[in-house]
Every structure is written in C-alpha cells, then in structure tokens.
Amino acid sequence: MNKDRKIRIVLAKPGLDGHDRGAKLLARIFMEAGMEVIYTGLRQTPEMIVATARQEDADVIGLSSLSGVHNYFFPRVMELLKEKSMDDVLVVGGGIIPDEDIVGLKKAGIAAIFGPGTPTTEIVEFIRANVRK
C-alpha cells in the first residue's frame, strides 16, 4: 500500500438497528485521525456493505450493532469478503456484544470487538497497527 495513501474505512450499520451515535462519533474520530471515512447509513445488508467496501477500495470495515444480530450479520460479511477475495480487508466490530459471542466472531475473522466504554484512541491505534500494509 502506498505510504501516503490514507486509510480508507467503511463504517456500516447492518440490519434494522437505528442506534448510530457510536458510528457517527467514530466517523468523526477516524477523520480527525487522518482516515478517509465512508459511512453507509442505516439498514445495510451484508451484500450492500461488501459492495460499498469494494467500490470504495476500503482497507477497513467497521460494523456496528446494538440490536443483538451480530452473530448473524458479522460472519456473513466475512463470508462474502472471502468469496470476493477481499479477505485482506480488516474488519472490526462494536456495539452491545456479549463476551461469550466474541470468540465465535473472532473465529469467523472479525479482528476485534470494541464494547461500550472503549476509548476511541484504542480503536484508532488498533486499526493503524493491523491494517494491511
């Protein structure tokens, strides 16, 4: 990856969940951290999210869910990325996600899950350290 190129991140709200305070806040934090941010808005299917990531040549996908559907949507996004040979895209998630679900999500390929109360600096650092180089 070109060193001068900014990290491109697609922030997405899968499903029908309308809680986007966190997603919008992070959009601003990532921009201030020098990243290019594409926020999909609400009501995204996994197909829509992956299509946006492809179109935007995203390095990172951030998935946000507070309605309890992460176990369905997050792994499905990973499957689709694999199908499209986009598995070098770093995928992270956040929202209301019980600890016991995190193991399964990581196994599916989600690099990290950030729960309520995580300092945003920690998320920015994680992305910088783990994004494809």
């Binding site: 499903g15 029908l16 559907v69 369905y72």
Partner: peptide, 10 residues
C-alpha cells in the same frame, strides 16, 4: 430479507 436475525430481538 432485512428482518433476518432481528425477529423478536429488541
């Protein structure tokens, strides 16, 4: 299709 995973959740 958009209801997938959300039925009866919240």
């Amino acid at each position: 299709p958009l209801s997938m995973g959300e039925v009866g959740k919240v």
